[in-house]
Amino acid sequence: MRLLVVEDHVDLLKSMIDILSDEFEIDSATDGEEGLFLALQNIYDAIILDVMLPGMDGFDIVQRIRKEEIDTPVLFLTAKDSLEDRVKGLDFGGDDYLVKPFYASELKARIRALLRRSGSFTTKQTICYRGIELYGKDKDVMVDGHPIKLTAKQYELLEYLIHNKGTILTKEQIYDRVWGFDSDTTIAIVEVFIHHLRKKLEPFGYHTDIQTVRGVGYRLTD
């Protein structure tokens, strides 16, 4: 799962990355403009957003992404604990509030709660799509009650498609999410893995659910 953390306090940002990186993939930004750019360009499971940021504050960012119909759960971080600020953040499209300073355990618990409410995370770390079940803890996959063997990258690709079913994902988004910009492979690997994944699902008839959007990318039918 992938999170975006936007925080201008560099030491706190590094600390949060250390806390969360054992459980999540993390992208980060230290100012509002960069944070907005990342939020608009990528698909995240949740966004942790400082309120007071240089250039553009957290309230402005969440309003912009909601106008673009991006419904990613947003957890606001703030040094302010006034009722007015909490209400403002929630009214603008935030989903939860965490006041600084906070404990690492509470930060993780708040994020897990957001992900459960959004359907991106369950207490068993199991996600389902039609007759397909993915078991996050052991990376096992069952299709119509039958176990199938996927490589780690095939599993991540299928998981990403299921989390974003009904959404057109560009090849660039898939490559960035599953392989990362620092990968030694090229973006052509996406097409190869989509082909292999379809082959694994073909005996069960689910291969046609992965649609090719010509010139753009792929979509798992909703």
Rank of each mutant, 00 (worst) to 15 (best):
E156W: 07
V5E: 00
E23P: 01
F193G: 05
L12M: 12
L36C: 08
L75R: 09
I168E: 15
E7S: 03
T170K: 15
H207L: 02
V216E: 12
T167G: 12
K137S: 10
I168R: 15
K67Y: 09
I47A: 07
Y155Q: 04
G205R: 01
R64A: 14
L20D: 04
N164S: 08
T78Y: 08
L90V: 11
F92I: 03
Y206H: 02
R2W: 02
E68D: 15
D11A: 09
S15N: 11
V74P: 06
L161Y: 06
L12H: 05
P203E: 00
F59S: 07
I65C: 06
P101V: 00
E23R: 09
Q63G: 15
D91N: 10
L3M: 03
I127W: 10
V192T: 15
D184G: 15
D45G: 03
I132D: 05
N164D: 05
T30Q: 08
Y97D: 10
A29Q: 04
V216T: 13
I26E: 00
R110Y: 06
M1N: 04
V141K: 01
V190C: 10
V213L: 07
I210A: 01
R64V: 10
R198S: 03
K14Y: 11
T78V: 11
M1Y: 01
L13T: 04
P54M: 04
G55R: 08
D176Y: 14
V6F: 00
D176P: 08
P101C: 00
R110W: 05
D91Q: 12
G136I: 05
K137Q: 09
E133F: 12
P203C: 00
I70C: 09
V178F: 03
K88Y: 04
L161Q: 07
L197T: 02
G93Y: 10
K108S: 08
D8C: 03
S21A: 07
E191Q: 11
H163R: 15
Y175N: 14
E172N: 15
G35V: 02
E133N: 11
R177H: 14
L12C: 03
A113K: 14
L161K: 05
E7C: 06
Y135I: 13
K100S: 13
F121G: 05
L161D: 06
T126I: 14
A104Q: 07
T126Q: 14
K14R: 12
R214F: 12
G180D: 03
H9R: 07
Q211Y: 06
F193R: 15
R2H: 01
R86V: 13
D85I: 11
M1D: 02
L77K: 07
Y218W: 12
L83K: 14
G217D: 09
Y155N: 01
L49T: 04
G166N: 11
R117A: 12
V74N: 09
L3V: 02
L36I: 12
E34F: 04
L150W: 00
S120E: 08
S28F: 06
E33N: 14
K80C: 13
M56D: 05
V213Q: 05
V6I: 02
G205Y: 00
L98E: 03
L134D: 02
